[in-house]
Design a protein around this nucleic acid. Structure first.
Lengths: 209, 209
DNA sequence: GCGAGGACATACTGCCGAGTATGTTCGCCT
DNA sequence: AGGCGAACATACTCGGCAGTATGTCCTCGC
């Protein structure tokens, strides 16, 4: 064919390309509005390629979703354990979370999007199982924030608030970043970090002791 | 027929019922996934009824969207002008906004949902015009928050922050309520007000002087 | 008491999109 | 050197959904 022309060596991430394109499409048009052909077009390919790597449209979405959580856990979740008071650790978590929202926006928006699919959808038995698993992952990530709030109340670095409610208001504020943020042309990582700091400063004020 | 059996007098809000059913469906399954038959089923009727009141699916959604903003402006926006410092007025606005999220959840969730349709969709000329108008309404509502933040910096009741950024983090936190909130059985208005107060207390902390 | 129109229901059409079945090309192993 | 399987492309099927065309009932004005 024409596609594999100058393609070097093996390709362990040809699948990865499909995943990224899907995330982008799902973000732009939403899950239902995105056709498999759309994803293929975004790759300059045809459905054949997409279906070769993913069995169905739901499973493709699930993989996008899973990737989004893994990124969050790896980048932000790890800061739950670390030096300093609970407030310090929360600050690092929130900061990393916000940076994820900005730098892996396509994946992260589908994360917030997929929750509805869980709450109201009527999936098949197999899909329901994967959805449960993904929701558990998500819940696990949220629990890290709950624990931090509890720890903050304990070590005196933060106000004594309902951890679940505090988690929700905080995550609401910083998840929203993925909704309104769009990168300026020529924007640098440093600039994003500055912005993240600013957001953290505003948002955390209500929780600190 | 069978529908108009015990139906009293005139019906100025038969259309309203369709609108509410549509909001509910759009919230549950999302815009694209909702068929006109779904909306009709939710009413115990057929497409005929829906298409009698609304010309097309997009226009139906637009009306839901418009209603959502009108509610917000009427309930929360009005508190921009009022007694007290900017901080006090912001508090009342946020409180009312949160109550809207809880009590007209179906409409409000479509509000946050419709923005994507604007940013990435490819609507017809007529739809584009309506979308622009609706986005202006939304922007106008957001501007009220921007002005409050500016006023707060001026009258010393709040920190001097970037009004746009502050608006976004605040609205993120309180819009998110519509995502996670689901009413407890037997829940009363008083309980919701209590919850709203609690959220406001947490969220506003970062902005006050 | 009758014609007109509002408020739907019923019965269609046409298209679009998920999924499938079947090539086709290349690299690799033996 | 030939067969095999990965990695796609091409060409279909088939169901579902937006929109329409048409019929039906009830009510209100006259």
């Amino acid at each position: 064919m024409q596609a594999t022309a100058a393609n070097d060596l093996v390709s362990p991430d040809r699948r990865e390309e499909v995943l990224a394109a899907a995330a982008e499409c799902f973000m732009r048009r939403g899950y239902e509005a995105t056709s498999m052909d759309d994803v293929a077009d975004a790759l300059g390919a045809t459905k054949g390629r997409v279906y070769h790597h993913f069995r169905s449209k739901p499973e493709l979405f699930f993989e996008v979703f899973r990737r989004a959580i893994f990124i969050l856990i790896r980048e932000a979740g790890v800061h739950e354990t670390g030096p300093g008071h609970a407030a310090d650790r929360l600050r690092r978590m929130a900061r990393a979370h916000i940076l994820c929202m900005m730098e892996t926006q396509a994946f992260q928006r589908n994360l917030t999007l997929g929750v509805d699919l869980y709450r109201f959808g009527e999936p098949t038995a197999e899909h329901k199982a994967t959805l449960e698993e993904l929701m558990d992952l998500r819940r696990g990530y949220e629990d890290a924030f709950r624990r931090i709030f509890a720890a903050g109340a304990a070590d005196g670095s933060m106000k004594a608030l309902d951890p679940s409610l505090a988690m929700r208001t905080l995550l609401g504020a910083i998840n929203w970043v993925a909704v309104w943020y769009s990168p300026r042309p020529g924007e640098t990582r440093t600039h994003r970090e500055k912005l993240a700091e600013e957001i953290v400063a505003q948002v955390l004020g209500g929780y600190l002791a």
